[in-house]
């Protein structure tokens, strides 16, 4: 890949910005400009990569990431399934639309008690992540499925395509760019859902680590937990952006 001059400049400035941000973080901590609850960047990194804490963070990450991944996959499947259903059975669409946006309008904090009763404390994070992801994917997929072009639809009709063939060979491929964009925006949504869910009383995970560190003034632990969650979400988002670029180049 060859970059043009402005692109190189953008990249350099972006990297510079990140470095300045980390430097600022370090200096504010060093000079205690924000008080004792702002640790230096280096302190957080030292804390984070200390071998003795590998087990602690490993367990928390294992618990949270499995909830996030589970919620993401479940939300994706339900969202795509609902979109395909409302696309195939058009009369059902308004009802499914309304249900999806009503569920989305309920703040997760209000859904938590329901899930705690219905499911269990442990999987509440996964359930909220599922709902967050479901909505993003549902919206992206329903708009994507409408994107097949009229002449392609005519072609499939003349060729005598069945509904399922048309879905598989025309509607889904045409929807893929929208779906993948939805998948990208669903990643932070999954993280938010899982962390929020853990705040309502999970016994493991990064979210629990954050709340207990906050309540017990374990400042480096608090910042480390938030750092892990943010970095992981950012990496997932970055990978999804790469996938998105590939798919947009290929399918549209």
């Amino acid at each position: 890949m060859r970059l043009s001059r402005p692109q190189i400049q953008d990249l350099a400035l972006g990297v510079l910005g990140i470095l300045l941000f980390l430097l600022g973080w370090e200096l504010i901590g060093f000079y205690k400009l924000a008080g004792l609850t702002w640790p230096r960047f280096s302190t957080v990194m030292e804390y984070l990569f200390d071998p003795s804490r590998r087990g602690l963070f490993g367990r928390a990450m294992g618990a949270s990431f499995s909830m996030i991944l589970g919620g993401y996959l479940l939300g994706f499947l339900i969202g795509l399934g609902a979109a395909m259903l409302s696309y195939t059975l058009k009369p059902m669409q308004p009802g499914i639309d309304r249900l999806a946006s009503t569920i989305n309008a309920i703040p997760p904090i209000a859904l938590a008690p329901l899930f705690i009763v219905l499911l269990s404390r442990e999987v509440t994070g996964m359930a909220i992540a599922t709902i967050n992801v479901f909505f993003v994917i549902y919206v992206a997929a329903t708009s994507g499925l409408e994107k097949s072009r009229q002449n392609h639809r005519d072609l499939f009709k003349v060729l005598g395509a069945s509904k399922s063939t048309r879905m598989l060979r025309l509607d889904l491929p045409a929807a893929l760019p929208s779906i993948v964009s939805g998948m990208k925006y669903a990643t932070p949504a999954a993280f938010i859902g899982a962390i929020l869910g853990e705040w309502f009383g999970a016994s493991r995970g990064l979210g629990l680590l954050m709340v207990s560190a906050m309540q017990n003034f374990q400042i480096p632990l608090l910042w480390s937990a938030v750092f892990i969650a943010s970095a992981a979400s950012l990496i997932a988002f970055g990978l999804m952006s790469l996938l998105e670029r590939f798919v947009h180049g290929r399918f549209s």
């Binding site: 002449n151 392609h152 005519d154 072609l155 003349v158 060729l159 005598g160 491929p173 893929l176 399918f251």
Partner: peptide, 19 residues
Amino acid sequence: LSRAHRLGVAFQDHALLPW
């Protein structure tokens, strides 16, 4: 005939699938 896949068609816009 279309259900039996016995029609062939080409439009002004080629209607090829880009993927």
